[in-house]
Simulated scan of single mutants.
Amino acid sequence: MIGLIGIVIIFVMVFGGYTLAGGKMGMILKALPFEMIMIGGAAVGAFVISNDMSGIKHTLKDMGKVFKGTKWKPDDYRDLLCLLFELIRLARANPVGLEAHIEEPQESSIFGKYPKVLADKEAVALICDTLRSASMNYDDPHQVEEVLEKRIEANMHHSMHGTHALQTIADGLPALGIVAAVLGVIKTMGSIDQPPEVLGKMIGGALVGTFLGVFLAYGLVGPFAGRVKTVVEEDAHFYQLIREVLVANLHQHAPNICIEVGRQNTPGQCRPSFSDLEEALKAAKQDAA
């Protein structure tokens, strides 16, 4: 919703201000389809050239994040902490019993309580792989933390592909607008024998290309890239939380302490209060019993 509001504000302020200043929309609307074909078509073509099919799909999917916002909400962070608490308690009390849950998480009664976390393949893989490694005596906290950090960084790099692709388009749009404007000037020069009022309209139409390229770059595509980057960075906190809790577990802290470490490393806007999390953990204990 906030993304739509931003787009409306941009259009109202830019074109509303132009109209209030005495500008006529007719010239812009007449030239817009042709300029959009040249500028938009060239931008799409450049985008296709610079990305493979996977990158194209990834970028188009990421554009939805501008309007949807972050994937992980405050309740999801609380559920993640409860899930990790149950798994850590089971690993301490019955390491053999844990094996079934981390080998077949889709069939696990513990993972099944938290369907949104279970639906995220990377989160589940991060949890299960780390707990499996610990059960195989690969439990040096510093080494595991380094491995998890590199894995999260690699995933982050992949997730940032969409924002990089959009920013590349934004950087090129002003130049493509100039290309369209130059073509308009060339067209005008071919009609230099026309009266001034005709030449004025032709030059005005050519300048629409420059306007459109800059407007799309800094009013839409650039902000889209920035918003996607912000959402990706915010969602990455979810995976970093997994790392913090599991590394704390390898330090042999009590399960409650491990979860408190995770709670305090949760972003402020998503962090559950101590009392709310305590109630959720009590409920998890009762269900396990």
Rank of each mutant, 00 (worst) to 15 (best):
I2Y: 07
G3A: 15
I5P: 03
G6M: 08
I7M: 12
I10F: 08
F11I: 15
M13G: 07
V14C: 09
F15C: 04
G17N: 09
G23Y: 04
A31E: 06
L32E: 00
G40E: 08
G41F: 05
G41A: 08
G45E: 08
S50F: 07
D52P: 05
D52K: 08
M53L: 12
S54M: 09
S54I: 08
S54P: 02
T59F: 03
D62K: 12
V66Q: 00
T70S: 14
W72G: 03
R78Q: 15
F85V: 01
L87E: 01
L87P: 00
R89F: 01
R92I: 14
A93L: 13
N94M: 08
P95S: 08
P95W: 06
V96A: 10
H101C: 06
I102M: 05
I102Y: 03
E104S: 13
F111V: 00
K116N: 04
A119K: 14
A123D: 03
D129K: 10
T130K: 00
L131Y: 01
S133R: 11
S135F: 04
S135I: 06
Y138F: 14
P141W: 02
E145Q: 13
E146I: 04
E146M: 12
E149C: 07
A154H: 13
M156G: 10
H158Q: 13
H161Y: 10
T163M: 12
T163A: 14
T163Q: 14
L166C: 07
L166G: 00
A170H: 01
P174K: 04
A181F: 02
V182L: 14
V182I: 15
G184H: 02
V185D: 05
K187M: 11
T188C: 15
M189Q: 10
M189L: 15
I192Y: 07
D193R: 12
G200Y: 10
K201N: 15
V208M: 05
G213E: 02
G222W: 05
A225S: 15
G226K: 07
R227N: 15
E234I: 05
H237R: 08
V247F: 01
A248H: 01
Q252G: 11
H253T: 07
P255V: 03
E260M: 10
G262C: 06
Q264F: 09
T266Y: 00
P267M: 08
Q269F: 09
Q269G: 04
C270H: 12
E278F: 07
Q286E: 13
A288D: 06
